[in-house]
Design a binder for these strands. Structure first.
Lengths: 229, 229
DNA sequence: CGCCTAGTTGACATATTTCAACTCATGTGG
DNA sequence: CCACATGAGTTGAAATATGTCAACTAGGCG
């Protein structure tokens, strides 16, 4: 079923097996190669802005991308963090509508892009690609549900603990019997993720520090190694 | 492209044009017909339970379905309300995994079902069906984002106002210069949708009643006709 | 009648917002 | 090198919102 993938543009990628572009057949491969581009982003650089037209589907190859929506009153909400292997921009692509979110690099990042027109062509030639994109939609729905549920069930202090544990699994280094990380997020971003004000975030961190759960020094966080590590 | 749809099982449905099953071609049509069933649900009857295996994709034809997840501590969260034309169970189908939610009729309802195996066959024969399902995923993602944003940006009183306005657009009748509806939801369900406790919901309703926004008598709600009606 | 469920209300504890002041590090221009 | 502005982050105090526990009402039903 899968033929002649020796020159597949994602072939050398660590995420090739799970890639949404992996199941292309010979017909789709030429479209994929034609629409394929790489892009390097500096920290704080914007990949796409809110209300931009969709220019394609983006795959995070390295780094970390923050997906936000900005509100009329100047506040913003951090919708998700996109790590290497994640794809973004597919909502806008599938809806054939402008982006509802902004994507901005939190650290220097590398992005692989398949141009809009060629995504359509690839899908037409290889429907299994759409199947994989649909699975990414499901992942997105699941994580949204998890967030909605935790927001209505758990107190904010516990949600912050959970969030820091997740971040630790991505960014933490073992240091003796403790885990340490340098947060890629500002206090303001943390507050946006939990859905509280800046000042409340500062106080929640202080509480976790005071009760011994964490050590906090600026963006450097430490905690005891949990069972699941 | 679309052939011989005279005996399409959804042909007579009011939602045929937008149906996810509308773009079947002759090859897929026989699968669709084979897997097609109708089911009548009484109020409070369960369509599928949390952790059930996926038995297919469900389309609401009439009535109203509540999609909930139950938590270990006995509480629950109302994830969404599915109205006629909406499809449910597709998350579990696409993930090829058990349901993470329960679907229960709030009022007597009619559901059209396409059995699991036949959904796969229909999609294989008519990839445009998967395209339509992906668009429903996008709708789901959009409404989840809207909920996450409103939870972190708006105070609960305002969110309740918004919710009642949405419900009024579905269930309201004009009565002179006022809109009236009989809520299909209990106070507990309303509380689950906003993410507050029962008692808080009761007090929020009282506040909206006291400041003249609403008239409230049990499940009968009245409000002035808003500009957008 | 007694019992159940849905819904309301009160009183008090806890959590969060809001506004303001403050620290601290960093960078810029004279 | 210093004065100063700037942005990230912290803290305090008062107001507001929500959770919690308990008591209570009203309606439906055997």
């Amino acid at each position: 079923m899968i033929t002649n993938t020796s020159d597949h543009p994602c072939k050398g990628c660590a995420f090739y097996q799970g890639s949404v572009w992996q199941p292309v057949e010979s017909a789709g491969l030429s479209f994929l190669k034609r629409g394929f581009m790489r892009k390097e982003l500096a920290a704080e650089q914007v990949l796409y802005a809110q209300d931009d037209e969709n220019r394609g589907v983006f795959c995070v190859s390295a780094g970390l991308i923050a997906v936000r929506t900005h509100h009329p009153d100047g506040t913003s909400t951090l919708i998700k963090l996109a790590y290497p292997g994640d794809i973004i921009g597919f909502r806008s692509f599938l809806a054939n509508a402008p982006h509802k979110t902004e994507a901005r690099a939190l650290v220097p990042s590398r992005i692989c892009i398949v141009a809009h027109r060629d995504v359509s062509n690839v899908i037409r030639a290889s429907p299994a690609v759409l199947q994989r994109i649909a699975e990414r939609c499901v992942t997105e729905i699941d994580s949204n549900h998890a967030r909605i549920i935790s927001a209505s069930v758990k107190p904010n202090r516990e949600r912050l603990r959970d969030l820091l544990l997740e971040l630790m699994q991505r960014h933490g280094h073992r240091h003796g019997d403790r885990l340490c990380m340098h947060l890629p997020l500002s206090r303001s971003d943390l507050a946006d993720l939990i859905g509280v004000r800046l000042e409340t975030m500062s106080r929640l961190l202080r509480q976790l520090k005071d009760d011994g759960t964490l050590t906090v020094s600026g963006r450097d966080i430490g905690m005891a190694v949990p069972a699941s590590f």
